[in-house]
Design a protein around this nucleic acid. Structure first.
Lengths: 103, 103
DNA sequence: CAGACATATAACGGAGAAGGCATATTGGGT
DNA sequence: ACCCAATATGCCTTCTCCGTTATATGTCTG
């Protein structure tokens, strides 16, 4: 079953995979080099990322080229949206009052 | 020890706590009602959230009032930043070409 | 078509986290 | 000072997930 986006992102190795895919599409082998994890481990993470929609994959010769997809990251961005007022909104009087209350 | 922001957010109950704190500060008891989880469980999640900086807490009479803090969510927002070009940037010719390649 | 390369899956062991119950702690009211 | 309310912590069990080794699938190449 497909895992939810936050659980997927909780894994450091998976975030590093996403980072690596930000610059360019990569084959599994390319990802294995530079990640310092075994190939099966990488394949498993790629499966999780694929099933959650973070990446897609095309076949080129003997290799599988993975590619970053925007969908789930956009969703996280959207989830974050109602929280943005915490740091974007101007502090009004009430807000300042609450700030002064906390220790 | 303090857990990293993504791991903290991976827990659905913790996200619901953050949601509840978005509108107003809440005591532990208020959070327990409406979450449908035992009080010790909520206290444990609050501890995780506190140690990771997502919330702060002040003492009022016998209660502890928890409050949402912007820091870690901002950090997640920042992490997301280099990925935003995936969906904000205009598709150029190369991008369209790659799109047509994937199946 | 046989062998080699690239990737995926299986099986297993171990570590961490979540929830529940029981209990400790802290602060308040009388 | 006692008792009670509000919250925190300990302990235990269960379950999920990561990583490794071994093996299967698949696909070029000679």
């Amino acid at each position: 079953m497909s895992t939810d986006a936050f659980t997927v992102l909780a894994e450091p190795t998976r975030r590093r995979i996403l980072d690596a895919l930000r610059d360019a599409d990569r084959s599994v082998g390319e990802l294995v080099d530079g990640l310092g994890v075994s190939q099966p481990a990488v394949s498993k993470h790629l499966r999780v990322l694929r099933e959650a929609g973070f990446v897609s994959c095309r076949t080129a010769a003997r290799q599988r080229i993975y590619r970053l997809e925007p969908g789930p990251l956009r969703a996280v961005d959207g989830w974050l949206d109602p929280y943005r007022r915490l740091w974007t909104r101007h502090l009004d009087a009430l807000q300042r009052h609450l700030d002064s209350q906390e220790q």
